[in-house]
Design a protein around this nucleic acid. Structure first.
Lengths: 329, 329
DNA sequence: AATCATGCCGAATGATTATTCAGACGACCG
DNA sequence: CGGTCGTCTGAATAATCATTCGGCATGATT
């Protein structure tokens, strides 16, 4: 019997390897096959559940902090990911993304329309979404691509991954995030394809967004935002960015030339979406978070432990329904 | 916190590795340690039971065959080890030894006196005896060493391993298995040390023995037995060997010069021991097995599947209490 | 204080495991 | 028949993992 994939055979091999501590080479002799095949058979045994590996639950979340955040800022959901020691940068994003994914996945219902922005932390998150394609989502790209060579962190790519992993189809925006001239931008906005995307954004139930700071954002990293523009934004009171739109401390869009260059979901659209989940890592983003919440955009938060603590040490702004114009200087 | 062996940390690391499928390098970045340490921490997590690997039971025995053997040959216990396909030689011995060990271990009681012979299959078996030293056995070497450089398969070494793994002390014989001159042999037999061993052999409750054929035994392999001697033995009707003693089809010791050269347990001693377990692999040994049973030495059998089948196809001899002298030619 | 024993660490290294690759084989056509 | 897949295989190789080793830190002992 040349190829025998019977459970019994797999049990024998799995037992010798996992329980009796033989190496794959020894098992191979025993079973009269190559080591390569043993490796494959073991993989099969794991798939079939003949070998079961259980790990005592690791609790990746800080529930007390979540509760405090939720009540203090009136959030729908707060998820605080443990960040053991001095993690930062990519490692931190990875931690938040990894463990945030399960929760984020759970917040998305089978037939939702999901708006998806770009960003580094969100990129890490979507990679780890549970790969069960049993949903029929409509995933909509919520902002254009930062520059011409599409990167892993662009909304286009992130959205594609969400649709692929969770199951559903993907509505791509197929435009840059920024257009130097307002006129060109406006022309693009009238395109059927773009208008279709916006129509779906209007009806989205869930949004996954990142939050940027002035100093440390993908735009700066990718050279889209120059020093002059940053000065302008600072003068206009910008404290952060969401979906390519810069907001002041109250969560209103800053009135600069920049706002006429953006293609992507608008703040009013975000405000309408009942479940906007901001995925954030790093303690330098607290101002942006506060602003996002105050402005009524952000409804839920997935965040690392340290940033959560920092946030809890800051005053919650009352949701500002007052001014529509941004405060100047 | 430089060295943190908390369960929580281990859970995190174990989870990332075993459940989330990260490599140790990735986990290492996550945890800010070297890959080496991750490897060590994972080992620790397994030890602590944070990671648990279970394998669906593999049934290594052929119970139907065991039952048939038991009734047909009037055995106390018969253990038939599956030998999937065309295993032979060392591989077969290894299979029988590996899976036979658990059963053999179970047949030994906490305070038993255990006589142990040498042999290749038995050697494989004792290696895999469950390493729980909670017994206080007296392990007695049942035959001398085949030649001067003690090998792994000699009773001396095998016995030592039994005592070490199961727990207990070991009575060594410290003599060769064969002495060219009867006089020297007889002199050795009077030694206090040797007599002590024999005294214990008289009171043994369990014996682990192998069975040899004329053509294929450790003695031939090691060059102890020459062609002339083999001719003699054949003429004397020898069909096999147990503990250095050659027996005819009735299970009586063959009357040749050889019998006066052996140092080791005698057939009468073996007959008195209530639980003599023969560990055998290979279908060429069936005649020896039959003889051993017929002669009243062998009470239990640990054997491979193919040999068991062969054995079942042969006629069971009635236990011969009749002749004390071996049949000649 | 100096010395030693002990334990822990990560770089390097050796050992093991997973994957790639090219060939063999059989089923299924044309 | 002779192709043409598709699947399966083990050798070779790439990737990954475990262990060794020397260095460093800590704390006990002289």
């Amino acid at each position: 019997m040349p190829n025998d994939y019977s459970d019994d055979r797999l049990r024998l091999i799995a037992r010798l390897y996992y329980l009796d501590g033989l190496g794959q080479n020894e098992v191979a002799k025993f079973a009269k096959v190559s080591q390569a095949k043993v490796s494959r058979l073991l993989a099969l045994a794991r798939e079939r559940g003949i070998v079961r590996i259980t790990v005592a639950d690791y609790e990746p979340r800080r529930r007390e902090l979540e509760e405090k955040l939720r009540t203090k800022f009136g959030l729908a959901t707060a998820v605080v990911i443990k960040s053991s020691d001095g993690l930062e940068g990519t490692d931190l994003r990875r931690a938040v993304g990894h463990f945030g994914a399960a929760v984020a996945g759970g917040l998305i219902e089978p037939r939702d329309i999901v708006a998806v922005a770009g960003g580094r932390t969100i990129q890490e998150l979507v990679q780890h979404l549970p790969a069960v394609h049993n949903r029929s989502l409509t995933v909509v790209q919520a902002m254009g691509s930062v520059d011409s060579n599409v990167s892993q962190v662009d909304a286009q790519e992130v959205g594609r991954v969400v649709a692929q992993r969770l199951g559903g189809n993907f509505l791509s925006l197929n435009t840059p995030a920024f257009i130097p001239e307002k006129r060109t931008r406006d022309a693009l906005l009238t395109l059927e394809q773009v208008r279709n995307v916006h129509a779906h954004l209007d009806r989205a139930r869930v949004a996954l967004v990142g939050l940027g700071t002035l100093a440390n954002s993908v735009f700066v990293e990718r050279g889209t935002l120059d020093a002059v523009m940053i000065r302008d934004l600072e003068r206009a009171g910008a404290v952060g960015e969401v979906c390519g739109r810069f907001i002041d401390a109250r969560g209103q869009e800053c009135a600069t030339a920049w706002r006429d260059r953006v293609i992507g979901i608008t703040l009013p659209q975000l405000r309408k979406i009942p479940q906007v989940i901001a995925i954030v890592s790093g303690s330098d983003r607290t101002a942006a978070i506060l602003a996002g919440i105050a402005g009524g955009m952000i409804k839920s938060l997935i965040i690392d432990e340290l940033a959560a603590s920092t946030l809890l040490g800051m005053p919650a702004l009352p949701p500002a329904k007052v001014t529509r114009k941004s405060a100047r200087s």
